[in-house]
Amino acid sequence: MLSVTVNGEEQDAPEAGRNLLSFLRFDLGLTGSKYGCGEGLCGACTVLVDGQPLRACMATVGSVVGGSITTIEGLAQDGDLHPVQQAFIDESAMQCGYCIPGFIMTAAGLLGRDASPSSAQIREALAENMCRCGTYMRIQRAVERASGQLGGSA
């Protein structure tokens, strides 16, 4: 039996070829990672693997064995929201919210690499994520706010 680490817990995986997004959502019930396109084009399914953003819809379980997966459900630590999560709340960066987990995970990945990216770098990192509700300006502000905080504490 294969096993993978999801949000710090070892999980048995049914088969190496199982789609990672389906595995997370339907086998583990971690439905915070969303299905938006299944083609790697919208970012709604983004999770972190060893801190790096990954499109779960384009990956198999087998490809992440040995890695540590974080989903939106596992981003808050000991009940404390990740600064990116808090910043999305503070900027009201959401409407329907369907895209939001993907944006937050992508942004958390970016800030993990670089605690104070420029506005242009933020835009570039988030350009593969899609928000049909059009909350982009707020998302941009939220990530800038979070980066300010992370940068400040670093």
Partner: peptide
């Protein structure tokens, strides 16, 4: 602020 914001940013909001 929105009352459902916390569910949205933690992945708890269910669609």
């Amino acid at each position: 602020l929105r009352i459902d914001a916390i569910d949205q940013v933690t992945g708890k909001a269910t669609y």
